[in-house]
Amino acid sequence: MNNLNRFLSRYWCPFLLVAWFWSVSGLLVDRTYTVFLRPELGLLLVVALVVMMGFLFAEMRQWGHPRVFGLDGASRMLILLAPLVYMSVARGASLDSRAFQNRWTEMSGTNAVLRAGNEMGAMNSAASSNTAVEATMLDLTYSPARFKNQQIAVIGMIHRDSKIKERFGSDACLLFRFVVSCCAADARPVAILTGGDVPADWADDTWIRAEGRFTLRDDKGQPVPTLEISTATRIPKPRQPYLY
């Protein structure tokens, strides 16, 4: 036991640094860090790697130098290893309707943006067109008036909510995505209401490409961005599931 304690007191810090270095460089190499952070922040992770290399270099110059370990050190080591263990679980994941439900603050949340969007985009409100315009969920929620009455195509995930059905009809569901400012923890959902042809057997979190006419539906005096879907296609999860 004493030998183990002695060994750990000498090597737990370099071990921890190597584990972190290995994991973070792995995230950078296969670009899976974008699951957690916006792509530009990869540069910060590179800086983190450089600093960790510096730490490792300093550790190697005093190789085997003991640090206080004991129960405190053991707890600290386990705690600092925890993000690496959880990283393996989260690597293939992305925010889904569960996170949407927790973070969504009702359609009126979009309306707040809508008002600003209306003011800015009212002048640009185009006449209806038959060719579908590719738009992102961010375009539709930030500048809805620009797309009003146009045929648009948009990519998002489905979310069915009993409250939305009660309020907007049985075929209503939400099409949503997440907008990331810095990391997935601060990602906020943007959503539009959909009506029309979305097969009932498509579960929540299914990625679809929806085409249809974009309108602003009136809900107690508040405009709600709505897509009257004419065609919906299931698609695989995009390489970049988030908007930035």
């Binding site: 995230l27 699951v35 957690f36 992770l45 993000p83 959880y86 990283m87 996170a99 990391c183």
Partner: peptide
């Protein structure tokens, strides 16, 4: 895990 690792990595 997603939220936890995101906060730590950020």
């Amino acid at each position: 895990s997603l939220a936890f690792v995101s906060i730590v990595l950020e």
